[in-house]
Design a protein around this nucleic acid. Structure first.
Length: 438
DNA sequence: TCTGGGGTCCTAGGACCC
DNA sequence: TCTGGGGTCCTAGGACCC
C-alpha cells in the first residue's frame, strides 16, 4: 500500500491549525503545464469572451498588467513584450484543479475545497517541529504530480492562514512559498505591515471606511473595540477581527453544499437584436443551469430571466436592462418546462430595436427533490419528466456535453462568445491529447 | 470594434399576524 | 375606533469572494 505523507510525519494530539494552499497564477500555470517553453515568460489568460485579463504569470505582473484590465487597453504592451495570451479553457482548469486537490488532500486529515485553485487544510495533527519540512514536501509533491506550483499559508484561523498565504506569495524567494503566522510575535510584526484592504473579507468599500477611521493595518483592525467593529462592519467584521486575534470563528466546511442559487449568463460575441436569438441563448442557459440543478438532485421554484444592452457609458447604443421573475406552479428541474416559462418571461421584457449584449437566467428557491411534496395529480407526469431528463443527462455524459438538447437551443448559435486563442482540452478530450514524439 | 461569470451572506424595511 | 408592541417571513440591495 502506498504510504501516505501523513504517516511519514506521524500524528499527534489535536489542536487547530489551518493551511491555505493555492495554485500560483492558477489558470496560467495550467496552460504552462502543457506549454513548458512558456515558463518564465509573460503569460495571461482572458475571461470568457476574451474580454479581460483574469490570470497573469509573475512575468506578466512585472510588466504592470493589472488584474481585470480589458485586453484591448493593453494591446500594445502585449505585442511589444510578446505576452502570450490564452482564451480561458475552463474544462482544462477544472480537471487540473481536481488533480491538485487530490494530491493536497493526502497531506491532511480534513480539507475544504474553497475555490477552483485553493483549499483549506487541517494541519493541527502535524508536529510543530516538522511543519516547515512538511509544507515544503507538500509543495514539492504537488508540483511533481500535477505541474502546478503552489504557495501555502498557515495560521490558527482561516483569516490568518489567508494572510500568511498572501505573505508567502508576495515574497516567494525569501519564504520559499510558505509562511506561518502562528507565532504571536511574528504575527504582530506582520499584521502591523499588512494593509487593511488585503484582509480576506474586507473589500474596497470597507477598506475605505476603515481608513476614514484611521484604521490602516490588519493590526489596527484586530485591536479596535470589538463592539464598535460589530456596529460598523456587522457580524462579518467582528468575526474577521477575532480571527485576526487568533480566535477561530469558522471551521472547515468539508462537505460540498448544495447550491442555493444557480446562475447562467454570458455576453454575446456580437450584438444581438432579434427575439429569436435571445430565445436561443436563454434556452441554452436554462439547459446548463437545469443540468446543474439535476446534478445536485434539486428543483427550483423561482425563475428569473434578464437581458441587457451594453451598460458601459461609452457604448454608442442606448442602454436597456430588464428582468422578469416568476414563481413556478410546481418546483421543477425539467428543461423543456423551464424553457417554456423562461420564454414567457423573456417576451415580457424584450423590446425591439436594442442591441443586446448579454442574457442570463437565475434559479432561486432551490430545494432538494426528496423534500418536495409532490402535487398529487402531477405525480405521474413528474415521474415521466424525471425519466426523460435522466436519459438526456446520461447521453450527454457519455457522448459529450450538448449531444442531446432541446431544439430551442438552436444549431448555429451566431451569438456565441468569442474564444480566439483557446488551448486544447489536453486532459478532457481524447482527440486533444498531447502526442509525444520520439 | 473590443470591458467575465458565478456564487454567499447580511441587513433593512415592508407586510402581515397576534 | 384607536392604540401599542413584538414577532416572523420575505425581498431587494449591498458587500464580499474567487
Amino acid at each position: 500500500m502506498k504510504k501516505s505523507p501523513m504517516s511519514t510525519f506521524g500524528l499527534s494530539h489535536s489542536r487547530h491549525l489551518f493551511a491555505l494552499a493555492d495554485g500560483n497564477s492558477f489558470f496560467c500555470s495550467c496552460e504552462m503545464v502543457f506549454r513548458p517553453e512558456l515558463i518564465g515568460k509573460p503569460v495571461v489568460v482572458l475571461s470568457n469572451n476574451d474580454g479581460c485579463i483574469v490570470s497573469r504569470s509573475d512575468e506578466a505582473k512585472q510588466l504592470g498588467i493589472p488584474m481585470g484590465v480589458p485586453l484591448f487597453q493593453i494591446k500594445e504592451l502585449v505585442a511589444q513584450k510578446k505576452v502570450h495570451v490564452f482564451s480561458s479553457n475552463f474544462p482544462l482548469y477544472a480537471d487540473m484543479s481536481k488533480r491538485m486537490m487530490k494530491v493536497l488532500s493526502e497531506f491532511a486529515s480534513e480539507m475544504e475545497v474553497y475555490s477552483v485553485d485553493e483549499c483549506f487544510l487541517e494541519l493541527g495533527d502535524i508536529p510543530i517541529k516538522d511543519l516547515n519540512s512538511y509544507l515544503l514536501e507538500m509543495k514539492r509533491v504537488v508540483l511533481r504530480d500535477t505541474g502546478i506550483p503552489v504557495c501555502i499559508g498557515v495560521g490558527p484561523t482561516k483569516v490568518l492562514a489567508k494572510a500568511a498565504n498572501k505573505i508567502a506569495k508576495q515574497s516567494k524567494k525569501e519564504t520559499q512559498g510558505i509562511y506561518n503566522l502562528s507565532d504571536p510575535a511574528i504575527r504582530e510584526a506582520q499584521l502591523k505591515k499588512f494593509s487593511v484592504e488585503n484582509i480576506w473579507g474586507i473589500g474596497r468599500q470597507n477598506a475605505k471606511k476603515c481608513k476614514s477611521f484611521k484604521i490602516e493595518t490588519a493590526w489596527d483592525f484586530a485591536n479596535a473595540n470589538i463592539d464598535w467593529v460589530q456596529k460598523n462592519f456587522t457580524i462579518v467584521g467582528k468575526k474577521i477581527a477575532l480571527e485576526l486575534q487568533g480566535i477561530s470563528c469558522s471551521g472547515l466546511q468539508t462537505e460540498i453544499q448544495d447550491k442555493k442559487q444557480i446562475i447562467s449568463s454570458r455576453s454575446f460575441g456580437r450584438p444581438v437584436l432579434l427575439l429569436e436569438e435571445l430565445r436561443e441563448s436563454v434556452a441554452n442557459h436554462i439547459t446548463s443551469a437545469a443540468e446543474k440543478l439535476r446534478k445536485q438532485k434539486s428543483i427550483t421554484r423561482h425563475l428569473t430571466v434578464w437581458i441587457t444592452t451594453n451598460p458601459l457609458s461609452n457604448s454608442p447604443t442606448p442602454f436597456y436592462y430588464n428582468a422578469a421573475s416568476m414563481e413556478l406552479p410546481t418546483g421543477s428541474a425539467h428543461t423543456p418546462k423551464l424553457i417554456h416559462f423562461a420564454f414567457q418571461l423573456l417576451s415580457q421584457i424584450y423590446r425591439g430595436g436594442y442591441e443586446y449584449k448579454k442574457a442570463g437566467v437565475i434559479f432561486n428557491d432551490i430545494h432538494s427533490k426528496s423534500q418536495v411534496q409532490l402535487n398529487f395529480f402531477s405525480e405521474a407526469d413528474t415521474q415521466q419528466e424525471d425519466d426523460s431528463m435522466k436519459t438526456v443527462d446520461g447521453i450527454n455524459q457519455d457522448y459529450g456535453k450538448g449531444t442531446v438538447k432541446s431544439a430551442a437551443c438552436g444549431i448555429n448559435q451566431f451569438w456565441k462568445m468569442r474564444s480566439e486563442q483557446k488551448s486544447p482540452c489536453y486532459t478532457t478530450r481524447w482527440s486533444e491529447l498531447l502526442v509525444v514524439k520520439n
